[in-house]
């Protein structure tokens, strides 16, 4: 019971830190705006309308997107690690992100190729989301089917990498046949960016995100059973097939829709669950789900703040920042084998 108290303290601290990071994130950017003005613009109209525009229509949706992206990718990574019994699983490593990229490539780059059927207008945000979610769902299912046959954890990761290569190859072929504008659209999407979402798009993303989160909440009990292994899970009354399907749908919705909107973002899904397990020293998904939500959101806000290069005119691709922070964590995990436990 001692444990519960420390956990509660951690949750409160992380919650406060999240709010703090949120305000730091919206107060920093290429245009320097005084803090008072930022605070006022959130709650009333201020004289400098361009400042208000920057805050309300650019920085605010970007900060919310960062929260959705960090927590969503973290939670989908957490579920994948438990489902595949593999501490190195995550949306990027297992090729789920590649599947989403492939889906997006098919609709953006393939538009001219299948031009007869797909009118240009059809390539709306919804088509991209649907394609990305479908792509990630298909890869997730294939990896799952293979993981039933191939028990070796490392082999599954290599298969995930192969899915990535296959997707990349198909994307290459598609880009060879596509027009310059389509290619540009795809390449920019591939850099990954949190800042391109309008309030309307953020609303669409959040709706799908909420469905994914609700499904993940409903899977808490099954995820905990799976910590024992499948045969034990069955013996304590878990309907394996059904709960597996719910987890797969939830992860594909989260990883797929997020990738569709902000592009492929590496390592967040893999690293966040491990950091959460370390901090909370627990494998209970009831604790972890909330922990991953908070820590994922915080780290994504920090990464985005760095990517903005405050006070300068440059913005780094967010994908580069998350890789710089995430890849060393993976190496560190591999070196400290004991901490790979989950």
């Amino acid at each position: 019971m001692e444990n519960n108290k420390t956990h509660k303290t951690y949750f409160i601290l992380l919650g406060l830190f999240l709010v703090l990071m949120f305000f730091i994130n919206i107060s920093l950017g290429s245009v320097s705006i005084p803090n008072i003005a930022i605070f006022n613009s959130l709650f009333s109209t201020i004289e400098n309308t361009s400042w208000q525009y920057i805050i309300l229509d650019y920085r605010l949706p970007k900060a919310f997107t960062a929260i959705v992206v960090g927590s969503g990718l973290g939670i989908s990574g957490l579920m994948m690690q438990t489902l595949f019994k593999n501490p190195l699983a995550g949306p990027f490593v297992l090729g789920i992100t590649s599947g989403a990229s492939l889906g997006v490539a098919v609709v953006t780059l393939g538009a001219s190729l299948f031009g007869g059927f797909l009118l240009g207008a059809l390539v709306s945000k919804w088509t991209i989301i649907a394609a990305a979610t479908l792509g990630s769902f298909l890869v997730m299912l294939s990896v799952l089917v293979i993981s039933v046959k191939v028990r070796d954890a490392m082999a599954i990761l290599i298969i995930g990498l192969m899915f990535g290569s296959i997707s990349a190859a198909i994307v290459n072929v598609l880009s060879y046949f596509s027009s310059a504008e389509e290619l540009q659209q795809y390449v920019f999407w591939g850099f990954g960016s949190l800042g391109n979402l309008s309030w309307h798009e953020l609303f669409i993303l959040s709706s799908i995100y909420i469905i994914g989160i609700v499904l993940s909440l409903s899977s808490i009990k099954s995820l905990n059973s799976l910590l024992l292994g499948e045969n034990y899970a069955k013996s304590i009354g878990l309907n394996i097939k059904q709960s597996r399907l719910v987890i797969v749908i939830s992860t594909s919705l989260l990883a797929g829709s997020i990738t569709a909107f902000v592009g492929p973002i590496a390592f967040v899904g893999l690293a966040i669950p491990h950091i959460s397990r370390q901090i909370f020293n627990s494998s209970n998904h009831k604790t972890l789900l909330l922990a991953v939500f908070l820590i994922g959101a915080i780290i994504m806000l920090i990464c985005d703040t760095i990517a903005q290069l405050p006070r300068s005119d440059y913005t780094l691709p967010i994908n580069a920042i998350t890789s710089l922070f995430g890849a060393p964590i993976v190496v560190w995990l591999l070196i400290r084998q004991r901490k790979m436990m989950f």
Binding site: T82, K85, L226, L227, L228, G229, N231, Y232, S235, I236, G237, R277, S282, S283, N284, M341, F342
Partner: peptide, 19 residues
């Protein structure tokens, strides 16, 4: 219902030893 009448101890290792 089966889980309420029969429990198992298997030879396989549990997946997570962090519990």
């Amino acid at each position: 219902a089966l889980a309420k009448v029969m429990s198992l101890v298997l030879t396989e290792q549990i997946t997570s030893k962090n519990l």
